[in-house]
Amino acid sequence: MTELFTYYLFPGLILGSIYALGAIGVSLLFGILRFAHFAHGDLMTFGAYVAFSMVTLFNISPYMAIPASIVGGIGISILIDKVCYRPFRQSKTIVLVISSLGVSLMLRSIIQIFWGVDYEVYFSGIQPSIDVAEDFRIKIHHIWIMLGSFSLIFLTHLFLKNTKLGKAMRAMSDDSELALITGIHTERVITATWIIGGSLAAVAGIFLGIDTQLSPSMGWDQLLPLFAAAILGGIGRPYGAIAGAMIIGVAEELSSYPGFLGENAPLLSPAYKTGVAFFIMVVMLIFKPTGLFRGRQF
């Protein structure tokens, strides 16, 4: 039982909290700009590599590099929006999807040019861990990742709940026509969405890099779980995205737990973890496209 918790359930929650940081952005952007942002994973990669530069240049811990990475993430998000998405505000949303696919590859090629294609790590050596109970060890990094994610999610929650801009964002992602009648400043809301989405994605990238390693395709590989989480929670529902992300993260890790069948064979080879996210997503899209928390459907 402790094995289940130590190696599957807890890492699943860690993975889920990393997904949550990305999925909130995907969900809000889908709700407000009405398109599936295919470059979101690569925003994560970008954030991770900005932090990597800080780590190697100033010899600091990646946690100390979070502010710089957030600034970088916000900057690149707003730049991309201005150059590549803003001209298509009045076009069919599918044009935005094509454009974001292009942006995703451009972003990845920039990362490959500047940082190379090799796998990189923030720290080398064995990651320290502490004993919580007998047979139950937790990596110290996992504690930090969880605390970091939860506090960022909480900050986002405070912003969405209490500020005027946050309320406008939720209104727009809930029903943009209705929101426009009330005189909401569209472009300001969109910029705010990119600021939140871009900074959360950057931090998600750093945490993913701490938990595993850095590579130019690290973010792209998370795209399916991100979309799955956003769809599972309901498009345009940031809180739904958090719940969806946790479910996807735990489901992915549990899929390779060998204890279920009683014969020490995992349900699914760990190589196919992403398939779990995809399976949940397709089932959801077909049977309940509005998600668990009654999101929007376009």
Partner: peptide
């Protein structure tokens, strides 16, 4: 039976799984 963006997400998902 999916439309637009959703079909896009589903097709790219299948392609990624096939890659695995």
């Amino acid at each position: 039976r999916l439309r637009g963006d959703y079909l896009a997400i589903a097709t790219i998902g299948l392609a990624e799984i096939l890659r695995l």
